[in-house]
Design a protein around this nucleic acid. Structure first.
Lengths: 347, 347
DNA sequence: ATGAAAGCGCTAACAA
DNA sequence: TTGTTAGCGCTTTCAT
């Protein structure tokens, strides 16, 4: 029935108070769970509110109290990427019990969009921000902080700004991946990497360099970058495989890239398939037998939420930089034995 | 520096007005993009606002105008599930250009949690709701509608309530999956299904029944339900495979279940591996060569967002029920040839 | 094109 | 324990 949407009268506190036969403020106290309300009036007010279908107007409440909204904003690249969705879910889990909401917004890795989103969230009195930033410099976030809104940088550190952060030890990640391949006898090792401006990319690269520059110097020729989606990664992989001397192993810089690599590999015959290791641990890696190097994404979300909440209750606490380890999960895709290791089961 | 968080003076419209040398209302008009502001004053006000770092206080604005917040709420089960995250992303894409925000909340398939979330979102003046409901009955949503807040039911229809909805043709999905297996010569077909109270489960079951009750009646004995996560699905799969006469094909009711099935299968040797088809199309299905029956999740999100926005601008429009088709994507996992079809490439 | 006054619904201080 | 009085920062009339 269309008229379900006829605008209903909004019930206000005043009406609840009147019906309960108390003053506005008393009703406010009762509904706000404040002290100093007799059990009887409390019951009366609650009954009146229920009867009338009253819901507090958060806008009025915020305005009057000067508080910020009970919501925190998460800015990420693209929630279709399991890394971001896992992050979102873990942050949400952590804050909802505190009565807080999660607003998500996608920057699509654009600094401009990120800027607009931050502005927008700030105007909505968002209480804290958790951001996977697409900016290369973060001094402008100082204005947000100055307004009393904690900003926690996640996955990528804050540049030019003192702020709490939670990141992985990406150098360690690069080292682990490289060493694992070396240990399995590979010397022609390719790296299909993300946008070169990403700190995560750079650090992973450094980690690999530390291990490979001496032991498998050809890796530098086999470096391919700026893959940020499945298609571009696939393209780069194809190119690598068509080389006169193709790599015997490929490191995929993140889960999107890994998918692209595997996608390209899935069309190939057994003998040509190189070993593969991914950085990130998408849910399908285990089932597909893909070796990975990854950290605990949920822990990142948890830490980020906690840091934000902690600063909310103590703005003077020292800035905290959490660095989480990455670890190697070896699986079939890098198992010894050359062409027998078939990451995809292609027929 | 800790004192970055010293509370900064919140800049108000009044200050901007004063600095620009105009009245409060003029400043409001300029910043609000209203008519009747001379180019000169407009420029002045804008300059003053920028200089002061002014940001409109959304709470005050909403209160004064009586408008609802420019945000829509999405309630889903768990954003770690690619179905929900894809949905969230497509809704966000669709509304952000309209200047709207997405608030996400997870019900974890609990009606009680869902109820609380709806209440909470309503009190925050959320403008519209898109919900994958965990309730079996939706009459109580009438109150939300009565307040002028459109509710769009997604993936699962509204029961006992007139409301816009976007769902897949799940009967079709069930039929397609069953028929495909039949066409490939299977007669012992198992179905590992979701919670039995889910409309999607029931409809898919009906679709399968329509095809299999005559042609492969044993499927009823091979029906396993209440798998909602990877672990339970895995457990049920193990049980099916240990049967004296195990199924030669398995239909996985959704992407979590599919992952569980594959997980269990990945430990098995070639000969024992049944054909597998999943309902849903997670990103990894193509690469893994898993046949699926699925609809376009992004389209669901887009439609949902549009229906919500459409009702916002015309509350009297007739209720719309969008039913999107599902289609079969045959891949290796159901290819003919018995044990040769190895969905996992297990060694 | 601009301004003055009123008030959105609520909470904060104070008083009783 | 309860009520009264002021606003919160903005947008609305309605003037000018």
């Amino acid at each position: 029935m269309q008229d379900a949407y006829e605008n209903a009268p909004r019930v206000t506190l005043a009406q609840v108070a009147e019906r309960a036969g108390v003053s506005l403020k008393t009703a406010s106290r009762a509904l706000g769970g404040e002290q100093y309300v007799s059990d009887e009036t409390l019951a009366n007010v609650l009954a009146a509110a229920t009867a009338l279908g009253y819901r507090r107007n958060a806008a009025a409440s915020l305005l009057a109290s000067g508080h910020l909204a009970e919501s925190i904003g998460l800015i990420g690249g693209d929630f279709t990427n399991p890394f971001y969705s896992a992050l979102a879910q873990s942050v949400e889990d952590e804050i909802r019990d505190q009565g807080m909401h999660l607003s998500v917004a996608t920057s699509w890795e654009s600094a401009e969009r990120e800027r607009r989103i931050v502005d927008d969230l700030a105007s909505r009195q968002t209480k804290a921000l958790v951001v996977v930033s697409a900016m290369s410099e973060h001094a402008e976030y100082a204005r947000v902080q100055a307004r009393g809104v904690p900003v926690v940088f996640v996955d990528r550190p804050a540049i030019g700004l003192e702020a709490d952060s939670v990141v992985f030890d990406n150098r360690m990640g690069g080292r682990l991946a490289a060493q694992h391949l070396l240990d399995n006898g590979h010397t022609r090792i390719a790296f299909v990497g993300d946008y070169v401006w990403l700190p995560t990319y750079r650090e992973r690269l450094e980690g690999m360099a530390a291990v490979l520059d001496g032991a498998a110097p050809s890796w530098r020729e086999l470096l391919r970058v700026d893959a940020h989606d499945v298609a571009s990664s696939r393209e780069l992989t194809r190119e690598l495989l068509s080389l006169a001397e193709p790599p015997t192993a490929i490191v995929a810089g993140n889960n999107r890239i890994l998918l692209g690599v595997l996608d390209e590999l899935s069309g190939r015959s057994q003998g040509d398939i190189p070993a593969v290791i991914g950085i990130d641990e998408p849910e399908w890696a285990r089932v597909m037998g893909i070796s990975t190097v990854a950290g605990d994404v949920e822990a990142v979300g948890r830490h980020a939420a906690r840091l934000a909440l902690a600063r909310l209750s103590d703005r003077a606490r020292p800035v905290e930089h959490v660095v989480l380890p990455m670890r190697l999960v070896p699986r079939r895709s890098t198992a010894k034995g050359g062409s027998e290791s078939d990451p995809l089961g292609a027929e």
